[in-house]
């Protein structure tokens, strides 16, 4: 009989065909779809993340695992309402105005999604106003911005200023990244966090979300 562990292993192996069989079997057995997601699919990705960080898995393998998880999700999603789909939080991600370098940004999108976050990917060359509008519309917990050039990194600052001007700054945490970005720069421009690669960015978001929920718990 298929187990939740098998599902996780299947995600880890990036077995696109196997996952369909396994998840369908669990559904047919009457396993709670939410449990399949949390303890099977996302649990699998939770094994992947540290293996990637320690260098034992490559990005293409992580992507296969993520694709596998998504393949499983496709079967489970119709069985639950959108609100029931567990989300660790919502994040808006984009490269700033003038910057087209999206490999790192795309990695982060993939890794955040596999981690159970709802990700709104604004793409590349995102103007200050577009970030602001997206925050207004989607009410994310976190905004992630990246810049790979010394000339575009200043757009991080202007985007933050835009959020301040639009009265949105306090509603979100802001994380930034990209080659020229440093912790010092993050402090200077008033970002909440900085990360120099996708895996530590995910961890940073996890920490921010748990800080946020504990402060919410306090204020509740």
């Amino acid at each position: 009989m298929a187990t939740l562990n098998d599902v996780s292993q299947c995600v880890l192996d990036g077995d696109l065909d196997g996952i369909k069989v396994l998840v369908q079997a669990l559904i047919d057995d009457g396993t709670d779809p939410i449990v399949i997601i949390n303890d099977g699919l996302i649990a699998g990705m939770n094994i992947v993340a540290p293996l990637f960080k320690s260098g034992e898995m490559f990005v293409p393998e992580v992507m296969e695992s993520a694709d596998t998880m998504n393949e499983g999700m496709k079967l489970v999603k119709p069985l639950i309402t959108d609100e029931d789909i567990p989300s660790k939080g919502k994040i808006i991600i984009g490269t700033v105005n003038g910057d087209l370098h999206d490999i790192g940004k795309n990695l982060l999108v993939m890794m955040m999604e596999s981690r159970g976050y709802t990700v709104i990917d604004l793409g590349v060359d995102v103007k200050e106003e577009a970030f602001s509008a997206a925050v207004k519309e989607h009410k994310p917990n976190i905004v992630g911005m990246s810049s790979l050039l010394t000339t575009t990194m200043m757009k991080i600052e202007s985007t933050i200023k835009q959020l301040v001007a639009d009265g949105l700054r306090n509603q979100v945490k802001i994380i930034i990244g990209g080659a020229p970005v440093t912790q010092e720069f993050a402090d200077d421009v008033g970002a909440d966090g900085y990360s120099d690669d996708a895996s530590t960015a995910v961890e940073l978001c996890d920490r921010m979300m748990s800080d946020q929920s504990s402060s919410e718990a306090l204020s509740a």
Binding site: T150, T151, M153, M154, P180, F185
Partner: peptide, 8 residues
Amino acid sequence: FTLPGMDI
């Protein structure tokens, strides 16, 4: 060589 971080 290139500029330090700055707007143009």
